[in-house]
Design a binder for these strands. Structure first.
Length: 421
RNA sequence: GCGGGUGUAGCUCAGUUGGUUAGAGCGCCAGUUUGUGGUAUUGUAUGUCGCCGGUUCAAAUCCGGUCACUCGCCCCA
């Protein structure tokens, strides 16, 4: 029994779901190309340090969510939990730090050992864009603009709200962090269990805690914007000005925080209410500190990653018909002629099915079921007269034509059908 | 990792206080229609009642464990 089901947190991508995900990746690719992002791919596993160093050993992702293992040589490897660190590592490995900026996009599987939920799998897929080599706030705007356009083209933008925040530069954040810890320590005994833990590990997280007792304390806590350096404020203002001018709606969300250490300045998430508690459909921010953590030079960079499965869940699903034409074999004597003719139609670009089971009626039924709007019928009679029956499924109309006429007729039929859509 | 819910046919689900042959709708397959689909009608079939163990004369039903799914927390895509 056990081997018959997939591993917990993984699932088979059956044709329906797979095609929905393909559609998401296709439009994301289209838009990313317009912005000049180029497709790339990194290995799905890396030396463990590639993730543990930049993400921070205490971060949840590294502490309890990575799939790490030793290979036969005793080297510690980790299945990638996210894409950004790998992309930055690849940039450094390939000596591209001398030819900045670089703009990449990627799509592929990610792995996180978590408790599965709707929209949260242990094996899932992300699409991401990285704009590496600029400190300019306009780069942030380009990233968010690209993200928004992808969501818009997928028809899900109006189901999402763009939450935006600035974490400030390193100095802003350190100052704020200290002030926050000082403030919260006085109330430590009143904080929720989770938040007591967070006080040491990731105090900024307490700001968006869902526990009521925390929210009351947080209400009077020092606010991050007050600690932003003038440069950080300036960066944020320029970004929001660009977004406003481009008419990209955003919501200031001071509680929006990134769990990973290397983030600075801009942080954003497109959040939907439609997916339960896994509402973040696309998230990203600026990660100026990442390159240095990996041993590279200081490089400014921004990026985002989107959950492909989550997006596919939001996209309106339309059933697409698999076939155009059904070739109905009335009897076995028509097999070889029918097969050859089906191939002739296929080489004209049509999707052709040859139902194999049952009598003529059964085969027609089958053809109708899989979307054929045209059926051709071949049997002993047709072979004798060197003709073919063509049936228009919508009207039931049927005519007798020669092979060549049928090909012309079919091509014309589907051209018109295409135009009428 | 923590807490709640669920697990009966391909799908959606019913199954009364434990009681013998486990049901419905949809779908599937076949016939009405031996070379003509969508509608209609008739009929057939389908299940280790998630798995393992326990209580009992008797378990789909009660108990324990386990696996999976699901919702919330944590965290994030």
């Amino acid at each position: 029994m056990k081997p018959m089901q997939p591993v917990r947190g993984t699932s088979d991508l059956m044709p329906k779901q797979k095609s929905q995900m393909n559609a998401v990746v296709e439009t994301a690719t289209l838009i990313a190309n317009r912005y000049g992002f180029q497709d790339m791919e990194t290995p799905i596993f890396e030396f463990t340090e590639v993730f543990s160093r930049p993400l921070g050993a205490s971060s949840d992702v590294v502490a309890k969510e990575t799939y790490s293992f030793e290979d036969r040589g005793g080297t510690s490897l980790t299945l990638r939990p996210e894409g950004t660190a790998s992309v930055m590592r690849a940039l450094i490995s390939n000596g591209l730090t001398q030819s900045l900026p670089q703009k990449f996009f990627y799509a592929g599987p990610m792995f996180r050992y978590e408790r599965p939920q709707k929209g949260r799998m242990r094996l899932f897929h992300q699409f991401g864009c990285e704009f590496i080599g600029s400190y300019n706030p306009l780069a942030d705007a380009e990233i968010i603009g690209c993200a928004a356009m992808i969501l818009s083209d997928l028809g899900v933008l109006d189901k999402c709200v763009l939450h935006l925040n600035s974490l400030g530069d390193t100095k802003s954040r350190d100052d704020y962090r200290h002030a926050l810890i000082t403030y919260l320590s006085d109330y430590k005994h009143l904080l929720s269990q989770d938040s007591k833990r967070r006080l040491d590990e990731n105090p900024l997280r307490i700001l968006d805690s869902k526990a009521v007792e925390d929210q009351q304390i947080v209400e009077n806590a020092p606010r991050l914007p007050e600690f932003l350096t003038p440069q950080a404020t300036e960066h944020f203002d320029q970004l929001t000005a660009a977004l406003d001018t481009a008419e990209i709606d955003w919501h200031l969300d001071p509680t929006l925080v990134r769990g990973l250490d290397y983030y600075s300045h801009t942080a954003f998430e497109f959040i939907t209410q439609a997916l339960g508690s896994q509402g973040t459909v696309l998230g990203g921010g600026r990660y100026d500190g990442l390159s240095a953590t990996l041993g590279g030079p200081d490089i400014g960079a921004v990026g985002f990653a989107a959950g492909i499965e989550r997006l596919a869940l939001l996209v309106d699903q339309t059933d697409e018909f698999i076939y155009d034409v059904g070739v109905i074999l009335a009897d076995d004597s028509a097999s070889s002629v029918g097969f050859a003719f089906a191939n002739k139609l296929r080489s004209c670009g049509l999707k052709v099915d040859i139902p194999l089971a049952g009598q003529v009626g059964k085969k027609l039924k089958r053809a109708a079921l899989v979307g054929c709007s045209l059926c051709i019928i071949i049997g002993e009679t047709e072979i004798k007269t060197d003709t073919i029956q063509v049936k228009i499924m919508a009207t039931g109309e049927q005519k007798q034509l020669t092979q060549i006429e049928v090909v012309e007729f079919a091509q014309k039929f589907f051209e018109q059908k295409q135009e009428s859509i």
